[in-house]
C-alpha cells in the first residue's frame, strides 16, 4: 500500500521532447522505469515547443521536468526552458536532462542551473534513485 501513506506524496514527473528531435526510445525507457518505481509520469509526446512544455509542467505541477535531447540542440533548449520557468515564477521546479550531450556541455548546463543530467547507458535504477534524492533534497512544497 505504498500509495496510501499520506505523508509520502507520489513523485510527479513530466518527460518532454522538444523541437525536431524524434528519438523517443530512451524517454520511453525512462517513463516505464519511473512508473514501475511508483511515480506519475506525464509524457508530452514529440515535437513540443519550450513554451508548451513549461506551461504544461506548471499546470501539472510536476516535481521534476525531464527533457530528453539527442538532437544536439541542448545548448539552445535548456537555457530557453530555464528562462521561461523563471519568467513564470516556477524556478523551484527541478530540471533534469538526458540523451546525447557532450561532457563539456554538461558542465556548462549544470552551471546554468540544470539540476541533473544522466546520459546514455545510465541504468534505470540510477535515474529512479537520483530523482527520489532530488525531491527529498527539495523538501515538501
Amino acid at each position: 500500500m505504498q500509495n496510501n501513506d499520506n505523508s509520502a506524496a507520489v513523485i510527479r514527473v513530466m518527460l518532454a521532447k522538444i523541437g525536431l528531435d524524434g528519438h523517443d526510445r530512451g524517454i520511453k525507457v525512462v517513463a516505464r522505469a519511473l512508473r514501475d518505481a511508483g511515480m506519475d509520469v506525464v509524457y508530452t509526446g514529440l515535437h513540443r515547443t519550450p513554451e508548451e512544455v513549461v506551461d504544461a509542467a506548471i499546470q501539472e505541477d510536476v516535481d521534476i521536468l525531464g527533457i530528453s535531447l539527442l538532437s544536439g540542440a541542448h545548448m539552445h533548449i535548456f537555457p530557453k526552458v530555464l528562462e521561461l520557468l523563471k519568467a513564470k515564477e516556477a524556478e523551484d521546479m527541478i530540471v533534469a536532462g538526458g540523451g546525447v550531450i557532450p561532457d563539456d556541455d554538461v558542465k556548462e548546463l549544470y552551471q546554468m542551473g540544470v539540476d541533473k543530467i544522466l546520459l546514455q547507458d545510465t541504468p534505470p535504477q540510477e535515474i529512479i534513485d537520483s530523482f527520489r534524492q532530488l525531491v527529498a533534497e527539495r523538501g515538501a512544497r
Partner: peptide
C-alpha cells in the same frame, strides 16, 4: 499500474496544441 501504483499519463499527447492559452487548464 496495479503493480507499482505509478502511471504513465498520456492524454496530454493529444492535447499539446491547447497549452499556452491561459483560458485552458489541463491536469492529468
Amino acid at each position: 499500474s496495479p503493480f507499482s501504483g505509478g502511471a504513465i499519463l498520456g492524454d496530454r499527447i493529444r492535447m499539446g496544441d491547447l497549452v499556452s492559452d491561459p483560458g485552458v487548464f489541463i491536469r492529468s
